[in-house]
Write a protein that binds this DNA or RNA. Sequence first.
DNA 1: CGATCTTCGTCCAGCCTCTTGACAAAGTAC
DNA 2: GTACTTTGTCAAGAGGCTGGACGAAGATCG
Lengths: 393, 393
Amino acid sequence: MTFPTKATHQQTRAYNVALVLRALYDIGPISRAEVARLSGLTRTTVGDVVAELIAEGLAREVGRGPSTGGKAPILVELVDDARHVIGLDLGEFRFRAAILDLRGRVLETREREVTGLNGEEALNVVHELIDELKTRTPGTLLGIGVGTPGVVDASTGTIRWAVNLDWQELPLGRLLRDRHAVPVEVANDSRAAALALQLFGGAPTTNLVAIKVGRGIGAGVVLGGELFHGDGFGAGEIGHTVVEVDGARCRCGQFGCLETVASARAIVERATELAREGDAAAPDRTLDDVREALEAGDEPIRRLVVSAGRSLGQVIAGMIGLLDVERIVLHGSVTSLGQPWLEAVRDEARRRSLGLLSRNVAIELAPPPGDDLVVMGASALLLTAELGLAVSR
Amino acid sequence: MTFPTKATHQQTRAYNVALVLRALYDIGPISRAEVARLSGLTRTTVGDVVAELIAEGLAREVGRGPSTGGKAPILVELVDDARHVIGLDLGEFRFRAAILDLRGRVLETREREVTGLNGEEALNVVHELIDELKTRTPGTLLGIGVGTPGVVDASTGTIRWAVNLDWQELPLGRLLRDRHAVPVEVANDSRAAALALQLFGGAPTTNLVAIKVGRGIGAGVVLGGELFHGDGFGAGEIGHTVVEVDGARCRCGQFGCLETVASARAIVERATELAREGDAAAPDRTLDDVREALEAGDEPIRRLVVSAGRSLGQVIAGMIGLLDVERIVLHGSVTSLGQPWLEAVRDEARRRSLGLLSRNVAIELAPPPGDDLVVMGASALLLTAELGLAVSR
DNA sequence: CGATCTTCGTCCAGCCTCTTGACAAAGTAC
DNA sequence: GTACTTTGTCAAGAGGCTGGACGAAGATCG
């Protein structure tokens, strides 16, 4: 067992700086006095911290606010583009990289196909993407964030196991830190996306579970404003929870995993089977085909989609009981199936969990820019690690 | 949204005091210098903190340790009985109260039947128990901890809903604080027990789920050394997760809840039904009857027990995927069913979760003094709140 | 329009608490 | 006996928050 470490004045300071920064971040232009009231710090300390932030270029004064009976306050705001971050989304078939600002806004993106590449070639693509974007980054590069499928030791940035790219125990964090000399954070893509929804998704809740339902199924668990990793960095690996005891064989070796029923891959395969029942030579179906059939009122397809949604709902019901989280966000390609699917998820989650708890749970779809969620999450990893934007006590 | 609060020097100090106390607690007699090495604090600071702890009676010097080439260290240890705590276990039919020391050792207990009492009468029993034990408490009473069934707002100590005692929105924490003028902590009994296993259960792990399988089924979730409560203090309410879609009706109104299959109540009822298939006038079975039949090799009973265990295992599989916790502890009356049951739980949990994760998971029974687990947990609530024994960073 | 009151932001002195360096005490090693 | 280590403590110093005072800037009111 490693022993916990001491508390120091520097930590106190870092925490309070993060606290003030967070106030600027969340509450837009705001006066020093108001920050002092919100945080409980004295005006003196807030003034001092704000001076530091202004010196670092992270904040700036922007005119006066309305008076409330005395001197009008000087409003201070975050300088959104004071720093930039490179975010990477190492998808199964495509790598996506972007430059983002402090608000998680995407300024520029690059993409590369990686289908068929081996581990080393794929790693070179990562380097190329970063090198390209580095030259395009305005001002200061705060660091590099990476979201990747597979199990990742986020403390060191080591990818333990990424099945598609044949990466095992790849110390990606160290490699990137050595090469680019900036802070690097690496995490699983679903976890990263969860953090993006927490940090950039409007009203921040302290607890949230975000589930990515795409080719695979993975979740990110945000507790107390921070990503929860679990003992072996596997928290959120819900895709291989068995929901059908006599179900189909999964690539993980088990039978009836959630992924064999509710993932995009599973839905498409089943839809293709359905099509071939009528026409043995029918071509492979795509998720778009499924959505169109669904909208056209195809009953077998509807049943298929509802069944997929219900399986996910079943797993969500378990989360509700165990963690009592009141915000569950769904994203990934399967969410394009829309209401019939979402209603199936919600209905089953509610039906299978205690009403006292499920009553207050919101199960919702992630807001639109779904393609960028992982690169946004990658940048969120960095912002929380470097600027402490995830403060909460 | 409430804004997070500032960090102060006092908090730094409190944290470091807790850190030193924790070292004394976990690592027995230990020198100041060793604490300094472990914690990263300077010898000066540790010396200062230890002096404070000695002045408060919480620590004492106990001779010299072996020299390692220089002056022999003065060993310091925790004074186990420097403070005492009253712990209450407000069970469905019996209230149990105990005086415990800083190690969670039970010095004295009292019990009262409460079957048939109404809410107010039951509350009076609580007061009586405390009054009695208060006169028996040696030295300083650190506070009162309460574990109760039902949903509890642990931040204020309000029992929102305890079905058996007909308590609703009962501000028990405030009532006890007002009457006894000591700190009071109130939490759900399963959560309290989880904290007891964490704090007093040997090697402390940062993450742990403890599941109480008795008349009802509830879990306590310890993450990062602290109890996790969830958004509505309902984290751990796994008893009403549905595991059999067309199952029996549950007292919660749903069908096929885990409690209708795996609780002591369910097992006993099903066993009684089995008995009546052979003999319509057979008496009600007890859990002891079930255990005996199991040990005698009764096959229908074995199937029944295995089925109950498997349902629990199914829910545990969900936890493993979601949280990746490596230590899951089972307690409560049903654990008396022993190996056949435990193996069913383990097997199903493993079979339904990703091997990569479940490989490292230990699903174990709580060590013997099971009757005292909730009162121990109640005291653990207080020790962590008042002395900060749950530090971990 | 001036007097008074309020609020904002800053300056300064003070305090809490951790750190650094020095040193005596008490061991071991040769 | 001498040299070297380790322990525990003391005094000085530094980091960083607090509280009071004060000028600046605005509102209110007669």
